[in-house]
Computed example of a mutant assay.
Amino acid sequence: MSRRTALWTTSAVVAVLAVLGLLVANGVVWPNRILAARYDVRGVDVAHYQGQIDWDVLAAQDLDFAWIKATEGASHTDPRFAENWAAATRTDLLVGAYHFMSFESSGADQAAQLAAEVPATPGTLPPVIDLEFYGSYFQNHPTPDEVHAILDPLVAGIEEHYGAAPIVYATEEAYDLYLAGRYPDLPVWIRSVAWAPGLSDGREWTVWQYSNRDRLPGYDGVEPYIDMNVFAGTRAELEALTQD
């Protein structure tokens, strides 16, 4: 191969990789969509970042479920939760609420915050505890003992108030640090947007967040993307998790 040919080949490869990277960054190409396509039951999770949501339009996008951000820590309520909850529960979607767990307030106080904002409504999905890193905790992870001291009473408070075990959402790193080998009765919602998930302790996941770069009609917020998820089962099996 001549030097000129080698340069052209290298330039072409770099150009293709750059275009591919741009397509991935903008959600046009997302390899996990192929892997997730084998699951029939799919849904979204949303927060105020998606802005005003037309739930009738969103629900028509071949979706089965939606979890809506409700609370965070011991005092914060998502400003669009009440609006989203009222509108989403009027659709055919299976709907639930999620709580973003803080490492800076007690589990009992966080459970009380969730209970104050999210009604225990028959037919809705169980609450979700969102366990992931934020702010300075990305670099300085709390210890397992610190996290369990918050998570244990949070789980207990949710079970007592709603009569159902919560689902725990976690990144793969958070799962390995805090959940692996523990909480066997709690369904796991795993975030794995780069590849298909495989939990380190051999446990089966219940919900998989496979993309954070999808775009769907029906919302107009500052966040152009929406998270996509699949359920490891049938819609009837997901309905079986709803509150009595």
Rank of each mutant, 00 (worst) to 15 (best):
I129G: 01
E172T: 06
R235A: 07
V222N: 15
V147K: 03
A170T: 07
R90T: 11
A86V: 12
V128M: 05
L7N: 12
Y178W: 06
L186V: 05
T234K: 08
V19I: 13
P217E: 06
V28F: 10
Y169Q: 01
M1F: 10
P142G: 05
Y137R: 12
E173F: 01
L22Q: 09
A120D: 14
A87E: 01
T143F: 12
Q209R: 10
W205N: 04
W85S: 02
Q52K: 13
T10R: 02
P31A: 07
A88W: 06
A37C: 02
A60F: 00
V24C: 06
R4N: 13
N32Q: 08
T121P: 03
D201Q: 08
N84S: 12
Y210Q: 07
L216K: 14
L63N: 11
D152E: 11
D40T: 14
L35Q: 01
L93Y: 02
T171Y: 04
Y49K: 07
E83R: 06
A12K: 12
N140C: 13
A116W: 03
T9V: 14
W67M: 11
V188C: 13
Y162S: 01
I190M: 07
D176A: 15
D201Y: 05
E117W: 00
A59H: 09
E173W: 00
V28Y: 11
